[in-house]
Amino acid sequence: MALEIIESCVNCWACLPLCPNQAIIQAEPHFLIDAGKCTECIGEFRDAQCVSICPIEGAILDELGEALNPPGSLTGIPPGRWAAVRAEIAAR
């Protein structure tokens, strides 16, 4: 039972001091979670702390590999809209 940080992490440090288990590791190219230490904050906080402050959608996964902050949930940008805008810019 552990969460996972993936490559879309921007190394912003926000999660690291919040972890009650010191499970977050500063690393390059992105931060990591020590699966042996992570408890998903169960018994300590209502919500996993790293997930609750992470500003990047999709950067933290649960043990099933599901994004805990799915697209659109943090920015409010409808999924697909950003892709459409990027495609439009690339076509210029």
Partner: peptide, 14 residues
């Protein structure tokens, strides 16, 4: 100071 505790609609942390 890389960490932030709010999201503003004019900011993109990436």
């Amino acid at each position: 100071a890389p960490a932030c505790n709010i999201q503003c609609h004019y900011c993109n942390r990436k």
